[in-house]
Design a protein around this nucleic acid. Structure first.
Length: 236
DNA sequence: TACCAGGTCCTCG
DNA sequence: CGAGGACATGGT
């Protein structure tokens, strides 16, 4: 089957199983907590929300979102979800506030580097983001796709694991990203939803050590599942 | 108790 | 380049 068709099938299977994910989660004034907005791709509504998403993208590097939410909550309580106040905080003070997100000293430095970038007035393009200390390819693409609605595909550890197991081969970041960009319609909402769905699958089924292949919504199109089941057949 | 989590940077060969 | 280590907290 052609790559574009396979990618569409995977997307449909995931959407059917999980439904829309409502990424990126954002602080809600009404509820006072972080909420998802399913079936609404009109976010972010303003610069402040773009900034909140960017901060979340940096804080969630190799860290569970739960830990990031705590840190975002602390930042929100202190009115620190805009660039100016963050710039005026010392690395040490900022680090304490975001401590729950892990690597807090590093991430405090990264946030400073990012607000300096915003103040520099440089255009929000991938090349410029990658020059910012602490922003690598995935964080850059997350910021571009979710905070600034630019069509790009985010490749995270889940995506790499899932597509390697499905049988799409081992690829580096750029190669994997190209396989999506070249074979899918160039739509922000699709790229946002697809990545969010892959994270859902990675968390719930396609886990690193103990994947739940038997119940996985993609098992019928997965090399890894076929391989495991045939191996089990041999043993029995 | 280890291992994992929506990575990135730095160093070394 | 690519592998390997450092960075750190909280959940299972």
């Amino acid at each position: 089957m052609k790559v574009d068709r396979r990618l569409q099938n995977v997307y449909q299977s995931l959407l059917n199983h999980f439904g829309p994910q409502g990424w990126w989660p954002l602080y809600s004034k009404e509820t006072g907590s972080i909420e998802y907005h399913k079936n609404d791709y009109s976010f972010p509504k303003n610069e402040k929300q773009s900034f909140e998403i960017s901060v979340g993208a940096i804080l969630t590097q190799n860290t569970s979102w739960k830990n990031v939410e705590k840190a975002l909550h602390h930042l929100h309580q202190r009115q620190l979800l805009t660039p100016e106040p963050i710039r005026n905080l010392s690395i040490h003070a900022l680090a304490l506030i975001i401590k729950s997100s892990g690597y807090h000293t590093q991430k405090a430095k990264k946030l400073h580097a990012f607000v300096d970038f915003l103040q520099s007035g440089k255009t929000m393009i991938r090349e410029h983001l990658l020059d910012v200390w602490g922003i690598g390819q995935e964080t850059a693409d997350s910021i571009l796709l979710y905070a600034y609605r630019q069509p790009t595909f985010v490749i995270d550890a889940y995506t790499q694991r899932i597509f390697e197991r499905l049988g799409f081969g081992k690829k580096d970041y750029g190669q994997r990203q190209q396989s999506f960009l070249q074979h899918l319609p160039n739509e922000v909402a699709l790229f946002q939803e697809y990545h969010a769905l892959l994270v859902a699958l990675g968390k719930d089924f396609c886990k690193k050590n103990k994947p739940l292949c038997e119940k996985c919504p993609l098992r019928k199109e997965c090399n890894y599942f076929l391989q495991r089941t045939s191996a089990a057949d041999c043993e029995s």
